[in-house]
Nucleic acid binder design. Structure first.
Lengths: 201, 201
DNA sequence: TGTACATCAGTGAACGCGCGTTCACTGATGTAC
DNA sequence: TGTACATCAGTGAACGCGCGTTCACTGATGTAC
């Protein structure tokens, strides 16, 4: 019998939590958010369908944990992109962040999708909201500078950040929704051209 | 017994198709794409769960019909916005289209969501792809002028249109994903401020 | 105007599926003496 | 070093659910003569 590369080798006692998260992420990547199921995750982890209950209250909690990690990851990448492009100036850093954002989305479409599917997530979870805010402030700090952010996200004072975010988020969504022939090519050739459109402003 | 306003009065023989579509749209509006089900649609139409089969091959076909109508509606609104703002000049017309696009999305979030959930739609359906293209060309014709469009959507020649589309689409998605406190207020006060950011380019 | 027949527009019961969650349970591990 | 016990980290069978689709069927409508 050949190994099925979908299944993970059975974790040691006590290592189940990360194993479940890893299997769940792979399943998401393969089948998308709509194709996800807890039972299939358990199957791939080589574990009973009830096993997750020891670590996660329910499916929503597991998905929220994944989305939280994803936002943290995104924030890290935005910060890294900013750092490495900083020597070339502020405009270059902003562009680098935009490219990092889109690359994140296109490399892991299902995970990116999940992050915004609030109906499936526990949006009251503190870690989740904190991670999401952190990613947002990575953008905001760079675009608007160090000014304090207003309490409300729809304050027009945030317009510069939200304009930039809308642009990049829209590009990422369109790419993942199949609006372009090839998302990766679009990332390399089309996105720079799009960003050029606005480089004056 | 009080009327349940969810249920539609039982359609006359032969009028089932539009009645099903209407009930399905209402159900979508209430429960979102993930909460949609054919059986519930049938229930609300006062009809057997097998009834739809006479008009639609399967669930996918029904959803595709709704998405097709939605794209046609969107295209109509984009064209109307352009027409009524045309006297004020090209820039005003482009802005008016952007506002019409976002308003469409925010007024019917679930329908807008469905239009991009290609996993649930029959993307080989001719009417569907035609309607989607028509909406796209409403944007493209105005932004780039009458130049012929390249075959591929990720051709950098389309960058001006795609940049504008990304911006507006991203704003609409963020609004519907709950990124702003109040989508309708964001539409009225924030979107104009965002468009101002780019009005120079 | 009446009747025989064909087609239309559904009906309603049933099938089989995979799902999330619960429950009583159990073997493995750790701890106290 | 050995034993008794408690807790940990799950097991696996079962429950009940709603779903999309199929199937043989049937009453209503339309048509021909």
């Amino acid at each position: 019998m050949s190994d099925n590369s979908n299944t993970v080798k059975k974790p040691r006692r006590g290592d189940l939590r990360p194993a479940l998260l890893q299997a769940a992420e792979r399943l998401l990547a393969e089948r998308g958010v709509d194709g996800f199921s807890l039972r299939e995750t358990a199957r791939r982890t080589g574990v009973s369908p009830a096993a997750h209950a020891y670590y996660f209250k329910d499916t929503r909690a597991l998905l929220t944990a994944i989305a939280t990690a994803a936002f943290d990851d995104l924030a890290d990448r935005l910060a890294a992109a900013e750092r490495s492009a900083a020597p070339a100036g502020r405009v270059a850093a902003i562009r680098a962040q935009a490219e990092a954002y889109a690359a994140f989305a296109i490399d892991a479409p299902a995970k990116f999708d999940l992050m915004w599917r609030k109906g499936l997530l526990d949006t009251d979870d503190g870690a989740f909201t904190q991670a999401a805010e952190r990613a947002f402030f990575c953008l905001d700090r760079l675009v608007r500078g160090e000014q304090a952010a207003p309490a409300n996200k729809d304050d027009p004072a945030l317009a510069p950040t939200l304009a930039w975010w809308s642009l990049v988020h829209g590009f990422a969504c369109l790419a993942n929704e199949g609006a372009f022939a090839d998302p990766h090519k679009a990332l390399e050739r089309l996105l720079p051209a799009i960003l050029d459109q606005y480089s004056a402003g």
